[in-house]
């Protein structure tokens, strides 16, 4: 019985770590640069589908499924997310902030429609199964494999974390914050604000794409209903509660928020009478929305908040 709990928690931890990586990507956009990406799930989905299309074994009815090695899929997924981000960024980033929000929200909607309808590439509503898991043949026991995969995602998260920490402490990262705080001043100092924003946006989406790729190669399945807008809300909540601008907060709150989400699901299934169970999902969503709005109102810096000093030299 305890083994069961450990096994479930391992599975749970893998999902949390993957969502944490997506949150780190978002943090670069919102926390460091002040870009409102309302379509995270779209970029997460691109990464997921790219991984599936590149690595899954060929099937006659599908255009893709190239059966390439796992790592090629991961890189390809990041490239695809970056390209899509570049397209959206080119059109919207020179404009006012809410346009990016609307455009990213739109892209998530559109990508879901494409995933659902382009049967030949994406498998349509059924999605794609049997997506290879890295080194799966070395493990016979599913539990042992999950432990291995947890290690893999933790390593990926660590790389992303260290990389992003270095980046935001670099001169480039300081420019981002300068733009966020006072764009006019940054421009007056000769910084091309649009270019910096563009780079941050694309880099953030690349990280989100990585998270999507890690997710499908763990679950072994990809389908259009995995990328509903609620995921955008969940990832946003993870960031906001943790404190935008703080990568450690982002990671920690991925854990808290996902535990709250699944925990409340379990709780509802146990204590809410059967007749009202159908409203359980609504209660969960309201909970997420409340956490978002209340944090914005009363704790805008999040639980941990941003570290004030970013330059090593300024200490």
């Amino acid at each position: 019985m305890t083994l069961g709990i450990v096994s479930y928690l391992t599975f749970f931890a893998v999902v949390v770590t993957i969502l944490g990586i997506a949150t780190l990507g978002l943090n670069l956009q919102w926390g460091s640069t002040g870009l409102f990406n309302a379509g995270i799930v779209g970029f997460y989905g691109i990464g997921a589908y790219a991984q599936a299309i590149l690595t899954a074994a060929p099937r006659p009815e599908l255009l893709g499924n190239f059966g390439l090695p796992w790592i090629v899929g991961i890189v390809g997924a990041m490239v695809c997310s970056a390209l899509m981000a570049a397209l959206v960024g080119l059109v919207t980033l020179r404009l006012r902030g809410d346009y990016l929000a609307i455009a990213t929200f739109g892209i998530a909607t559109v990508l879901q429609v494409i995933a659902l309808n382009w049967d030949g590439l994406t498998g349509g509503s059924l999605g794609m199964t049997s997506i290879p898991r890295p080194l799966a043949s070395l493990f016979s026991d599913p539990f042992a494999y999950n432990v291995f995969y947890l290690g893999l995602t933790l390593a990926a998260a660590a790389i992303v974390y260290v990389g992003l920490e270095r980046i935001i402490r670099s001169p480039w990262g300081r420019v981002l914050k300068a733009i966020r705080e006072d764009e006019t001043a940054a421009i007056a100092l000769g910084k091309n604000a649009a270019r910096f924003r563009f780079e941050a946006f694309v880099l953030g989406c690349t990280v989100t794409g990585l998270a999507g790729a890690l997710y499908v190669s763990f679950i072994g399945f990809v389908g259009p209903f995995d990328f509903l807008p609620i995921i955008t809300f969940q990832i946003w909540t993870m960031l906001i509660v943790g404190g935008s601008g703080n990568n450690r907060g982002a990671l920690l709150c991925s854990l808290i928020v996902w535990a709250l989400w699944t925990g409340s699901g379990t709780l509802i299934s146990r204590i809410v009478p059967a007749a009202y169970q159908t409203q359980g999902g609504a209660i969960q969503s309201i909970l997420i929305g409340l956490v978002l709005v209340l944090t914005l109102m009363f704790k805008p810096r999040g639980l941990i908040g941003e570290e004030p000093v970013v330059s090593r030299h300024a200490r």
Binding site: A38, G97, D98, W236, A282, S285, L292
Partner: peptide, 23 residues
């Protein structure tokens, strides 16, 4: 608060309102 914080709050409110209607 920043303009975008307002956008963001409206984004969260949308989720709450929709699910309140459902409830």
């Amino acid at each position: 608060a920043h303009d975008l914080t307002m956008v963001f709050a409206s984004f969260g409110l949308a989720l709450i309102l929709r699910n309140l209607v459902l409830l």
